[in-house]
């Protein structure tokens, strides 16, 4: 595939990410889509370590390291400082992991987007605290092994739906993206960049050591999450207009779980239960996107003025 993105690299080789790191694939494609007038704010995370251990930096654009809970706050401050200097060309991006978004950074994020701060907040999601040794986060999915949910005590709680939490703030743009769909990712980044106010991108990024997968299937595994509707690709504008972006090849959830060591303890019954949970979520999303509602409208009365799908919710 050819990307509609900058030919230049904003990431240097020689970084310390593990082989096949999904976060780095996400960051590389993201920065190529953003271009050079970008400042990254990176709270404590894998990327924080990968991007710069003093005195080296991976990025060819400015990076400000932030404390783990403060990604959104630092980004807000930077935006204010740029505004004071009259710099409207530079985009501020907060780049945080799932720990720094779902858990530790959530308060700052909620506050900042409530103020509709003009930045792009990216959560690259590898579903646990990978940098510190694969501890469970509120993004860790149902069924997963981590070092804090070991053995038979695997996580029996659902993954927090961070996208819906952000949608509830009614910010201008919320979207999911996935490293296995770079064209979709680039389009969403460019769209986010063109919108004023708070934008939230939730990028699914595999972690070979944390997910217990061989590095070569890093992208393939991430793709399977979309194919199995575990991580649907969609975007929400102004908190109401839902658009589902991927309706291609489908797979059962089992395909996705079977390739990952972190799910190796799951049984056929577990898969069945997870499949049900995924289908429930998928149907809910489809209803929000108006797919079924729109169909129902057309069936019930073709004479009535069709209700716009986004008015249903």
């Amino acid at each position: 595939m050819r990307l509609d993105a900058d030919e230049r690299e904003f990431m240097c080789s020689g970084h310390a990410a593990c082989p096949g790191c999904g976060a780095v694939i996400a960051l590389r494609i993201f920065t190529k889509a953003m271009g050079e007038n970008t400042i990254l704010v990176i709270p404590a995370s894998c990327t924080g370590v990968i991007v710069g251990v003093y005195p080296q930096s991976v990025m060819r654009i400015p990076v400000v390291h932030a404390p783990m809970p403060a990604g959104a706050s630092v980004a807000s401050g930077l935006r204010a400082a740029l505004d004071m200097r009259g710099d409207t060309d530079t985009t501020v991006v907060a780049w945080a992991g799932d720990g720094g978004t779902f858990d530790i950074g959530f308060q700052a994020l909620s506050g900042a987007v409530e103020r509709n701060e003009d930045f792009i907040y990216v959560c690259y999601d590898n579903e646990a605290y990978m940098n510190t040794g694969i501890q469970c986060s509120s993004s860790t999915p149902y069924g997963a092994w981590t070092t804090t949910t070991p053995g038979q005590d695997w996580k029996r709680l659902r993954k927090k739906n961070i996208v819906e939490a952000l949608v509830a703030h009614r910010i201008p743009y919320v979207a999911t993206a996935n490293i296995a769909f770079p064209e979709d990712l680039v389009r969403k980044v460019k769209k986010a960049k063109s919108i004023k106010g708070s934008k939230f991108l939730h990028i699914f990024a595999s972690c070979p050591p944390g997910w217990r997968i061989p590095s070569e299937i890093s992208v393939k595994t991430a793709r399977m999450a979309v194919q199995a509707n575990i991580f649907p690709l969609y975007e929400v504008e102004d908190g109401v207009r839902y658009t589902i972006n991927y309706k291609g090849k489908q797979r059962p959830v089992q395909d996705y779980f079977e390739v990952q060591g972190r799910f190796s303890h799951l049984t056929a019954e577990d898969f069945e239960q997870i499949q049900k949970m995924v289908e429930e979520d998928w149907e809910l999303l489809q209803r929000k996107a108006g797919d079924q509602a729109a169909d129902a409208c057309i069936q019930s009365s073709s004479a009535k003025r069709a209700i716009k799908p986004n008015k249903v919710f």
Binding site: C12, S13, G14, H15, A16, G52, Y54, P55, Q56, S57, V58, R60
Partner: peptide
């Protein structure tokens, strides 16, 4: 402030 890139690390 960092002052060099990671390109000296031949990974």
């Amino acid at each position: 402030i960092t002052y060099e890139t990671t390109e000296s690390n031949k990974t």
